[in-house]
Design a protein around this nucleic acid. Structure first.
Lengths: 120, 120
DNA sequence: CAAATTGTCAAGTCAATACTTCAGTATCAT
DNA sequence: ATGATACTGAAGTATTGACTTGACAATTTG
């Protein structure tokens, strides 16, 4: 995810969308989410079945939190992690929007197949 | 996206899902998709507004193709790139599935709030 | 055919990621 | 108070990822 050279349209990327996709792009993080679907859990409870260190889990949790998928809160010496309600909403909306445009245009593909990039 | 150490449940990750999220996690690739929504395009047509080299675009296209979002085909010296119909289907399905479980469990949060990790 | 267009390949750079280890800090239990 | 638990923070390592450059190859086009 490096910054693109400045020129023309250069997408700076909606950083929130970036965070969503990036967070879900890692299998370990998806496993954490799956675990949290069943019940809230502490950092070490999450770490054990994953076979990685606490530190690594915390790092993943930070990413998941920034993406709005989980919320964590420290109770005593334990950090309790839960799913964030509505965490998937933004993502779902992104997909809905894009899917609409996507399908809409593809419908015209039959007619436009050749001419569309003839003049360009 | 490094391989996790072998132990316990270690999620190897459904590689297809990995590819989907990874592909969409980059703003440049999303910009390419947005461009292709309007019309099919050649590699250089895609490259110009992005301000990156042809080579870079080709690399992105490979990723988008592997994720099933675009299809490219070489006609003469030009590579024509189009959106792949149904490219978002798998992703949508993933979200639907997870959203269901997600919401289902969260409904019980009120009652379970404290007891759920008491015995654990 | 020669020149221009369009893309491809192999390598290399540099930053971001996914981990780790190790040395603390805060809480809880006895 | 002592020791065990549960996490935190800083720093380091190795792999991936997003680009580039530069040397080709394959089509057009004049």
């Amino acid at each position: 995810m490096r910054a693109a050279k400045a020129e023309a349209v250069m997408p700076d990327g909606q950083p929130q969308i970036d965070r969503l996709f990036h967070a879900l792009g890692d299998p370990t993080r998806r496993a954490i989410l799956d675990a949290l679907v069943h019940r809230p859990a502490s950092v070490s409870k999450l770490a054990t079945p994953l076979g990685i260190t606490l530190t690594a889990v915390i790092q993943h949790l930070e990413i998941l939190e920034n993406a709005g998928f989980v919320h964590t809160e420290k109770l005593g010496r334990v950090r309790v992690c839960r799913l964030e309600p509505g965490g998937l909403d933004t993502l779902e909306q992104w997909i809905r929007e894009h899917r609409t445009a996507w399908e809409k245009k593809l419908d015209r593909l039959g007619e436009a197949l050749r001419e569309e990039y003839e003049g360009n």
